[in-house]
């Protein structure tokens, strides 16, 4: 029920017959935003999720971050390495 749903609804209404495959949404799960880093890492969608959604739509196998050459920067709730404490 997020913003992506509205985009897909408009696309379905206007261009349904011409789509090559079903469109995809990538959004937060329908769950509470987490406090702990361990939960954050499995909650927030990341670059690899976008890449694999596109690959799946194109009929290509999934790839890992290492295979894609995407650097892993640590926990998903810390913006950069200079971070030392709570906001």
């Amino acid at each position: 029920m997020g913003f992506g749903a509205e985009v897909l609804a408009i696309v379905a209404e206007e261009l349904f017959g011409g789509l090559k495959c079903p469109p995809r949404r990538i959004a937060y799960p329908d769950a509470y935003t987490p406090s702990s880093p361990s939960m954050a890492n499995s909650y927030y969608p990341r670059v690899v999720d976008i890449v694999n959604a596109a690959r799946e739509m194109m009929g290509l196998p999934q790839k890992s971050e290492d295979e894609l050459g995407i650097p892993r920067d640590g926990p998903l709730d810390i913006p950069d390495k200079s971070f030392t404490g709570p906001f």
Partner: peptide, 23 residues
């Protein structure tokens, strides 16, 4: 996100025919 530029989105999808929609 409001008002939404549907022309731009549809123009891109029409070209590629497969949207992968972020929130």
């Amino acid at each position: 996100i409001k008002p939404l530029d549907t022309a731009c989105i549809l123009g891109s999808v029409e070209k590629n025919r497969a949207p992968d929609c972020r929130r």
